[in-house]
Design a protein around this nucleic acid. Sequence first.
RNA 1: GCCACCUUAGCUCAGCGGUAGAGCAAUGCUUUCGUAAAGCAUAGGUCGCGAGUUCAAAUCUCGCAGGUGGCUCCA
Length: 676
Amino acid sequence: MQIQLPDGSIKSYDRPVTPAQVAADIGAGLAKAAIGARINGELADLNRPIEAGTDQTVELKLITRPRTDKTGRTRGDHDPDALYLLRHSTAHIMAEAICDLWPETKLAYGPPLENGFYYDLYLETPISSEDFARIEARMKEIIAEARPFTRYDLPPDQGLEKLEAEGNKYKIDNAQRAIEAGSATLSWYITGLPEKGHWEDLCMGPHVPDTGVVGAFKLMNIAASHWRGDVESDRFQRLYGTAFFTEADLEDHLEKLEQARQRDHRVIGQRLGLFTIDEQVGQGLILWKPRGGAVRSVLEKFLQEQLFKLNYEMVYTPHIGKVDLYKTSGHYPYYSDSQFPPIQMRDGDEQYLLRPMNCPHHIKIYSSEPRSYRDLPVRLAEFGTVYRFEQSGELTGMTRVRGFTQDDAHIFCTPDQVKNEFRQTVDLVRFVFNTFGFEDVSIRLSLREPGSKKYVGDPANWDRAELELREVLESMEIHFTEGLGEAAFYGPKTDFMVRDVIGRSWQLGTVQLDYNLPERFALEYIGPDSKPHRPVMIHRAPFGSMERFMAILIEHYAGAFPLWLAPEQFRILPISEKAHEYATRVLDELRKRDWRATLDAGNDRISAKVKVAQDDKVPYMLVVGPRDEQAGQVSIRDRYRGDLGALPLEAFIQQADTEILTRGKNTVLEGIGSKA
RNA sequence: GCCACCUUAGCUCAGCGGUAGAGCAAUGCUUUCGUAAAGCAUAGGUCGCGAGUUCAAAUCUCGCAGGUGGCUCCA
């Protein structure tokens, strides 16, 4: 058997070996550092025998604990494989500790995650975060014992028999799934040695060699989860934790989490006075304060400018409509659970609904007059506010709310025009995202779940729509993932997803293809043959919703909006009251241009004014004193670059104007560097 | 909606059975100052809301509301 190592070198063996033995053959240092392996790409235990015929070549990559620097931090990037093994094993250690403390615990499932691990378990007694210290203390004991993880395998029937005898239905379920997925055996891991091991868990592995490898860990939080993700099924307690090879790495991780918290749009939104939520107004209802409103208004103007270039037309429609409208559209029968209940009129049976979507209103504008094929595409745009009754536990800041404004538009076009219109809207979304410098955007083709009853319309239309979306994305060479069951109820869509500071993924922009609503509303246009034809609709929103986009934008810039977006673009800081008159003249000059400028007329010292303006993340501070007044200049301070020196007021205005018009591509005094 | 936790001054937080505190912000006065916080003073709180236990509740118990993290959901 040939073992090929990542550097290309080959070692030959005439008998089965384990990665541990290969590591030992290479060197004592490697043997000590190794904690697992990839055998032909598969993650495996260090002591897993490598099975192969004599003439076969096996690729082996040893996974080692990281090298650390003087401070005990991992050097370079963390190895995801090493952390995966470590965290998986830590999950077992936590599970053992919990079973020690609560012997009636029934374990279910405990995988590693990107940043840690969790274990789902069934236990009547609620575990609270106050119990974490006890659990952690027991875990530390297990780690101090440096007990080996020892694997053993049983054939499926014997294994199931054993599990039946133990009576844990969740593990039996796991085992049955493994067998269905084609597992030849069922495996257990003993934390300890077989002859004296006292704790074991059904587990596919792999694991680190022993519990002593875990250098640092922390239980993070506890949440409810459900067996097989089914709300009706048994409720688990899910404990989240994280683990690293060293204390310093763990501390760095916790520090990063704390920094992320400081970037959180809810923290910054409060600090910078961008928005507020009032419980008397209602959960999930955003009140945009003047500074947030300033940003939003720039965003809306920016987008409208783009839309006019693409021949969109603005429309305005009310926030409610009769229930019957939504029966026709399909919203009411299909999604009544997630809508605010209907408004019942005093007399008669009439009911109105707060609209969950804007499309029915726009459809009625389309159908309010006869349409010719010559008029198409018709592109109707509106910053349309919609209301959805999201579950209370789902609401978060500005990212998940109950009332929000979509930068919505509906394109009505002929079947021939679909691909072109779709391509154009995808380009628009990409242009928007590029403008704000979003780089970590993933694109998802959201398709229907085969066999589900969540969708309206003719399957043939669905097939056609899904195929068209796919073809356009491929022709544009866009990399995308597929999301089965993520489609809208009326059609498939392309979603643009970004992550927030906590790592949660949110849908922002969306482009949706819809053959069904034109059908349900019997929309028509007259074709060149003088006969009526059915148009196709594209629903699209580049920002998605103003609220969610704003949230992501706040986090993206950590509240430091670029000049063209900043709620307060300039703040004039007079050195003393003697300069107030000149400062006011400067202020007037900026405001004449509709720029968002303020004057700090307080009697603080200049350094105090600077500090406050820095904290408020104002892009440019204009320091003015007698010197500046005499020279007709302003002393410019940039929030990042500090004191940029002085410029004549007119020259500064010109440079700032360029920075605003180019949306930050050219900044004031760029490249000049030296102080004036 | 489910589970755990949280809710004290505008903000960040301390107090955790004996009747409310700090820093920052605010307001006033002094200072008139050249690039990340000058000094002094004043004001500000039914301790989320409602019950209960107790001689006594911000503190203990229960209910409700809102928030945070997950789960589920997400047109």
